[in-house]
Amino acid sequence: MRNLGADVKRWLREPLLHFLLLGAVLFGVYELTQAGQTGPVSSKEIRLTLNELTQMALLFRSQWQREPTPVELNRLVENRVEEEILYREALAMGLDKDDEIVKRRMAQKMQFLAEDVAAAREPTTAELKNWYERNSSKFAQPNRVSFRHLYFSPDRRGNHARDDAAKALARLTGQPEDSQIADSLADPFMFQAYYRDRAPEFLGKEFGPQFAQAVEKLAPGSWQGPIESGYGWHLVFVDTVIPGRVPVFEEVEPDVKTAWLGEQKARAWQKTYEEMRAKYTVLLPAPPEAINAPRRAQ
């Protein structure tokens, strides 16, 4: 027979449960606090404590690397007082109600609160390894190629660049990569004539995506082409292909943790929100042609 107590205990430690509970708590607390909230809005007294003044000076010092002068401190105090006065007057006038920006800001704060609690937990290495096994394809590295290429420039050859490349290929068939005649057939290239161990993303930036994709597919060991790039036409001799691989966990552990944490936050927030949402009923008006009473949304 299974030990129910142990199961329950394990379940109580489950982070998601905490998030569900927090969601319920946040909602419940929000309802309570909305009821009889008067706060200090009606008070015309603004009291600053020594602690608050110290904080102001601390803040100044962290920015300016020195203590504020009496004039500067006075200005800080006045700014703080002005902000407090405006805040209270605004609340008294109900400016926070039906203000789209205030609504969105508060909604964002709720989200941050939930995410903060989610981020407060450190994962175990076993958890991360487990997660990595299921998600390792995200970390896979692409093939890298090394190749020499010959360039046929439209600036020099106009419409003949491709034909010239094809003719040059005929002369190079069977020639090795470091063939001496190769340079004489082609034009100087503005970047490199030889590339070592390059991934497709780099080649895409250097030559344009179509060239990168074409080179990826080339079999090594012979002159191939003509292949088009954003700069004209090329013949390419791939000599090495280093196949892409999935790294072992230890190589990428920090990145795995970051990715795992991101996923936890997103899931925690989603669960919390779903809990809150389930408690609400949303009523939408029917389309104009409908004669029924407003329907309930799902």
Partner: peptide
């Protein structure tokens, strides 16, 4: 504890003056 913290956070951040 989480309830308590959440309550305080809501009261201070969402409701009262900063």
């Amino acid at each position: 504890e989480m309830e308590r913290v959440a309550l305080y956070a809501i009261n201070t951040l969402a409701s009262g003056p900063p």
